[in-house]
Amino acid sequence: MSKRKQSIKSKTQTARRDPIPWKYCFLTLVCGLMLVVGFFFAARSHFSSIDFGIKNSRLRKQIEELEADKRRLILSKEIALSPAEIKKAAKRIGLTEMTASNIEVYRPPVKEKSKTEKLIVEKPKLEFLEKSAPAKKEEKKPEVKIEKKLPETKEKSEKIKVQIARK
């Protein structure tokens, strides 16, 4: 009897000492917390993966666009470098095609210079002589006359070229 009383006493004493089941509360809290944290991390990783996916697709799209741009630029470069376009551009800046008429003849220094010049502009000189002043005066300053006439020949050749181009 005394033993039984004692055991009842001790149990009532412990019950009194721990009226709230902290142990279970704590366990529940931990579990709940773990669940929340788990959800949180899962949600976070889910949204970050979506975010990465979005960024990834944007970058892919950017790469595609850049590659398409690159191809377009290559195409533009090829168009610009095509012989026909180079020819057009050369004409635009005043360059003419290499023909016999526009090859400059080599002029040896000093003495022979005047001879070659005479030979080069033989025709214009004659025309000039026909039109203008006495022969004696011209003979004194042949170089000046040649220089004046040179542009005419250029103009003529340019006219011919324009005519050819038009045709």
Partner: peptide, 17 residues
């Protein structure tokens, strides 16, 4: 033809010079 003429004349000039 004009080119040919011009060329021949310039060639002649070349030879002479």
């Amino acid at each position: 033809n004009t080119d040919a003429k011009n060329k021949s004349s310039t060639e002649r000039v070349k030879k002479k010079t």
